[in-house]
C-alpha cells in the first residue's frame, strides 16, 4: 500500500522541518514542504496530495488562498490551517471554506498527528 502524502506550506523553515521530521519519521507519511504559497500551488497543479497543512499568514499567496485552491482542485483533500495567534476571524473564514482543522502556534505535535489521522481516508 502506498503511503499517504502530505503537503506543508509555511514561510518559517523551522516549522516545515519540524513538521516534516515528525510526520515522516514518526508517522510514515510522505511529506513535501514549501516556504511560500506560490511554489506550493504550482506543485498542487502537478500532484494531488492527501492532506495539506498551511500557514495562514504568508507573503504573497496566503493560507486562505491555498485553501480555496486546494478545495477547487481536489475537494476531498483535507486542509489544516496554522497561525501565529488564535485569530477568531481567520478561523471563521477558514471554516466557511471547509477547513478540516485549525491550530495556533506553537502546535502540539501529538494533536496535529491526531487531527491528520482523523482526516485521512
Amino acid at each position: 500500500m502506498s503511503k499517504y502524502n502530505i503537503l506543508i506550506i509555511d514561510d518559517e523553515k523551522i516549522v516545515c522541518d519540524m513538521m516534516k521530521l515528525s510526520l515522516e519519521q514518526e508517522e510514515g507519511y510522505e511529506v513535501e514542504s514549501f516556504l511560500n504559497g506560490a511554489a506550493a500551488l504550482e506543485r498542487l497543479k502537478e500532484k494531488k496530495f492527501d492532506m495539506v497543512v498551511t500557514d495562514f499568514k504568508m507573503k504573497g499567496i496566503d493560507g486562505l488562498e491555498v485553501l480555496r485552491t486546494v478545495k477547487q482542485l481536489y475537494p476531498k483533500t483535507a486542509v489544516i490551517m496554522i497561525t501565529a495567534f488564535a485569530n477568531l476571524d481567520v478561523a471563521i473564514e477558514a471554516l466557511r471554506e471547509d477547513v478540516h482543522d485549525f491550530f495556533p502556534k506553537p502546535i502540539k505535535i501529538k494533536d496535529l498527528k491526531e487531527s491528520i489521522r482523523r482526516a485521512l481516508p
Binding site: 518559517e12 523551522i14 516549522v15 501565529a84 502556534k105 502546535i107 502540539k108 505535535i109
Partner: peptide
C-alpha cells in the same frame, strides 16, 4: 514545555 520537542514552534513564539 513548548521548546521540549513536543511542540512545533518558530521564533515568533519566543518573540511574543
Amino acid at each position: 514545555q513548548k521548546l521540549d520537542g513536543s511542540y512545533i514552534f518558530d521564533i515568533n513564539y519566543i518573540k511574543r
